[in-house]
Write a protein that binds this DNA or RNA. Sequence first.
DNA 1: TTTATTAGACTACACGCGTAATCCAAAAAT
DNA 2: ATTTTTGGATTACGCGTGTAGTCTAATAAA
Lengths: 135, 135
Amino acid sequence: MKELPKISEAEWEVMKILWSRSPQTANEVIEALEGQMDWKPKTVRTLISRLLQKEAIAFQETGRTYLYYPLVSQDDYVQTETQSFLKRLYGGAVKPLLVHFLREQKLSSDEISELKRILDEKTEEGPDRDRRKDR
Amino acid sequence: MKELPKISEAEWEVMKILWSRSPQTANEVIEALEGQMDWKPKTVRTLISRLLQKEAIAFQETGRTYLYYPLVSQDDYVQTETQSFLKRLYGGAVKPLLVHFLREQKLSSDEISELKRILDEKTEEGPDRDRRKDR
DNA sequence: TTTATTAGACTACACGCGTAATCCAAAAAT
DNA sequence: ATTTTTGGATTACGCGTGTAGTCTAATAAA
C-alpha cells in the first residue's frame, strides 16, 4: 500500500485547487489562488514543484505547458490526517473529541437530527459488529 | 489575552509529561519519556529549553536544579489546535467531521448513548439559542 | 583538595517550509 | 531574424524542528 506523501499547509491550498478541478495549468492554479492567498506566482510554482517531487500530483505535457492533476485523493488525505491528529491530541480516542464538538459547536437542528439518525443506525448494527470494508 | 505559543510535535510529548504531573525536574521528565520516545537525554533538555523560550513552561529553582511546570493548559491547547485543524481540513465545518467520525469509528453502545444524550440536550436548548459563555 | 560528574547554557547541523528570485530554452512578438 | 516574454528548472535564504554534542560552573566523589 502506498505511503501518502506529507503535504504542508501551503501545499494543501494548491491541492485543494486541483482537487476541485483538474487537470489545470500552473497559471490556472495561480489564478485560482489569487486574491485569496496573496502569493507571488513563483511561490505557487514552487509549491507545485514540491508536490511533484513528493508525487502528490503529476502532469501531462501539452506543448510547452503542463497540465497538473492530483495523484492522491482528498478523502484519503483527510482520513489520514485526521487519524494522526486524533492520535496526537486525543490519544486516539474519538469520543472525547466528539463530545467536545457536540458540546462546543453550534449545530442547526437539522444537523442534530442527522447526527442522531447516524447514531441510531449504529445502534441497530450493534456496537461490536465490525462492518468496515476490506482493506 | 495571551497568545498560545506554538508547540511542536516533539515538544508536545514533553508537555504531556508535565501536564500529567508537575512540577518535575528535567531528569524526571527524561525518565518519564524513556522507553517510549527513544530520545537521548540531551534531546529532551533541548525540548525543555525551547518550551521555556516559548513560555509554554517555566521553572522554580531549587538549589542547582529546576522544577518545571506548564504555563498553558492542555485544554486550551487542544481547543486551539482542534480549531485550526478543523479549519484546515474541513474548512471549519464541524458537521462533516462529526459525520465522518460517527460513521467510521467504532464506538461502544455506551458511548453512543452518551453522544445521543448530548445531542438531546442540545435539541432542548434550541438550535439558535446562543448559550456560550461571555468572551 | 584534586578530580569526576552533572545541570543547565550554548552551539551544531541537516531538512522541511514559506517565500520567492534567477537561469535557460522555447515560443511569441516585432 | 532579432528581441521579448514566458514556462519550467534551479537556486536562495531564514526560521522551525528533530536530534543531539560541547562548554562551563558547581557539586559530589575520591
